[in-house]
Design a protein around this nucleic acid. Structure first.
Lengths: 228, 228
DNA sequence: GTCTATAACCTGATAGAC
DNA sequence: GTCTATCAGGTTATAGAC
């Protein structure tokens, strides 16, 4: 039985521990211990802990986004000159991610941690790899929803990405809040729920909330204003 | 000019730096340096760095959730026996958060980092404080949307919380992806966009994605299956 | 080229003087 | 209650064995 290379073993251990214990609570010693490698191997292969994290992300995010665009392209060809239905495009965007979740459950919890820290260096490679996906899907949604203006469509893509990310990274919270009823166990069911929600959100009519005095916050409840 | 108490100064500095530099890249020395306090003051007032983080969260999350339930209660009284419209309930859920964003822009970026690490101890107080909000709003949505089954409503609350959290924590990413078009600058505009999206998502009809062979992933693109 | 041993430096926590 | 000194444990860097 041939051993996996040290580099791969470190990547696998890092992905698992980053997801399970969190980025900040996982030390390089934890990782090398689990991977049967020496402390300095991380520095040799990845330069630093952050460099390791960067490769943990890249090795999965690149094929993920390639697959999303491949499916979108397939759909565009199938529909020819007709606009791709919103649900079909959403499936191309969401299905590869949930497939990845069931194949590598740890990975998407790592990405959740990165995405929530926008000034982080690692976050920037994230955005970089997502740029093409964002543009491609925005274009398709614009064709399928000609009555929704450009800026609104981009906001709604943002909202649905949030729904998606939250679903993977945080389902344990939902499971607890729902008293065990809502579990992320069925791949197809989850994707259908997400598509239903997001498709309706994308098509939604504009809304303007009325100004009612009765909903105003009483003065005594005011919180201190913070600058800087 | 009376100086603010050391404890308050530390909390403010911690909130700011946790948001700007991220939890993992902010040291206690950074915080005490900014707050003109001494290293050991953190340990004295908060027991540990995590204890400090816990109080950074609690001092804002408690009034936030109280305000959400107050607004929901107001709405319920206003509508009496009639069901509260989905948009009105959503406003009660979302508006206090975005108000908080504009008052204390750093805070919600801190929460984003905590929420994305579900095994963290700090995350658990988060869930604890959210339990009542979740139950209260679930009940109202169930009355307003009698044709949607219970489990589906809970999933959809999960989705819309994701859209909301992503909006605050990650708008800088959207700003970049949209080429500067989408900015989180107008409080009312943003809340109206979110309500439109989420209300439609809550009302959405069920969806079942068809199984089409042409969308299958080719074998050569397979990724390694990961256990454990 | 791959990995190890070791050293330098930084971070969180704490005991005890003030 | 506040601050200094110090420690155990973490990350990063480098010289050199294989």
């Amino acid at each position: 039985m041939k051993e996996a290379k040290t580099k791969e073993r470190i990547l696998d251990s890092a992905e698992k521990l980053f997801a399970k214990k969190g980025l900040k609570h996982t030390s390089v010693r934890d990782i090398t211990g689990e991977a049967n490698a020496h402390l300095a191997a991380v520095n040799y292969h990845f330069r630093s802990k952050d460099g390791l994290l960067r490769e943990v992300v890249q090795r999965r995010i690149v094929p993920l986004n390639r697959e999303r665009l491949r499916l979108l392209d397939n759909a565009a060809k199938r529909y020819g000159k007709k606009a791709v239905p919103v649900e079909t495009a959403l499936h191309a965007l969401l299905a590869p991610a949930i497939k990845l979740y069931f194949e590598s459950p740890h990975f998407l919890r790592v990405t959740g941690q990165i995405v929530s820290d926008p000034d982080d260096e690692v976050y920037k490679i994230f955005l970089l790899h997502f740029q093409d996906v964002f543009s491609g899907f925005k274009e398709v949604f614009t064709e399928s929803l000609p009555h929704i203006e450009d800026e609104e469509i981009m906001w709604r893509i943002h909202f649905l990405m949030g729904a998606m990310i939250h679903t993977w990274t945080n389902h344990s919270g939902l499971e607890r809040l729902s008293g065990g009823v809502c579990k992320l166990s069925d791949e197809e069911e989850t994707i259908n729920r997400l598509i239903a929600f997001c498709a309706a959100g994308l098509r939604a009519p504009k809304y303007n909330h009325p100004h009612e005095d009765s909903t105003e916050v009483p003065e005594k409840e005011k919180r201190s204003i913070q600058k800087d």
